[in-house]
């Protein structure tokens, strides 16, 4: 019980601080919308092309826009040495990590939920045909990005080039999850339901989430304290 209370205290603190400054979410949202707009003008895609590139385009936008949020996650603790106060507090590294991951998850989902309708308008796509399944993929794919990105944020917090290192470390490991999310998103936007042919991608996404969440929870204490 204590663990979950600590997780929620950390998540609420991060969300409150972010909503006061809006430094990460504004940048991330603006970035996502600009990329969607630029692609729409650059390629003027037809209906078929849009359906083919939808998964890739959306998840590339989410992944790149997401790093702007994830980079701030632990870096937010550096001014005033706030990370020291959190490490000194009697909470487990896992609670600290999970609290931060939940806050990042909420912020990433907010950016994605604004980006999706914008994508629908710019690209003239009825993206709501398979809405519940698309939301499931969005939730699973975003958690994969969040858990890995939050972990990398902890890993790179004390290095000078963390803004560069976070995407360099995150994206290569994220490839399987991104592939699954892209493929499923493309099919769901095209109106294909989740079936026996594409369900393996869903299973892979779930597996990725479970494995990397468990690994992160086990390793975070060592990463933060050494």
């Amino acid at each position: 019980m204590d663990f979950f209370r600590q997780v929620m205290v950390i998540a609420a603190k991060d969300l409150r601080a972010e909503l006061r400054t809006k430094e990460a979410i504004n940048g991330s949202l603006a970035f996502a919308l600009v990329i969607l707009l630029l692609f729409a003008f650059a390629f003027d895609p037809t209906g078929d092309t849009t359906r083919e590139i939808s998964g890739g385009l959306l998840w590339i936008v989410f992944a790149f826009a997401g790093t702007l949020i994830l980079n701030r996650s632990f870096a937010r603790e550096l001014p005033n040495d706030c990370l020291d106060a959190l490490i000194a507090a009697p909470i487990s590294g896992a609670a600290l990590f999970l609290g931060k991951a939940i806050a990042n998850y909420c912020l990433l989902l907010a950016v994605e939920l604004v980006s999706l309708p914008v994508f629908g308008i710019f690209y003239n796509v009825r993206w709501t045909q398979r809405f519940p399944e698309l939301m499931l993929v969005l939730l699973l794919g975003t958690w994969a990005l969040t858990v890995l990105g939050t972990m990398t944020s902890a890993l790179t917090v004390n290095i000078r080039l963390r803004e560069v290192m976070l995407p360099l470390l995150t994206y290569p490991i994220l490839v399987p999850a991104l592939m699954g999310a892209m493929r499923l998103t493309m099919e769901l936007i095209a109106g294909t339901p989740i079936n026996s042919e594409n369900v393996m991608w869903l299973k892979m996404l779930i597996g990725f989430d479970v494995i990397y969440t468990a690994v992160s929870l086990v390793l975070v204490e060592t990463i933060l304290v050494g």
Binding site: D2, R5, A17, N80, I91
Partner: peptide, 24 residues
């Protein structure tokens, strides 16, 4: 430590309440 270890974006009472909660 060398830093004050409180959050600029939070109020004084929010900062102390946060740490009071973390210390149970």
């Amino acid at each position: 430590g060398h830093g004050i270890s409180v959050y600029d974006e939070l109020s004084a009472i929010e900062n102390l309440t946060l740490f009071a909660r973390l210390y149970g």
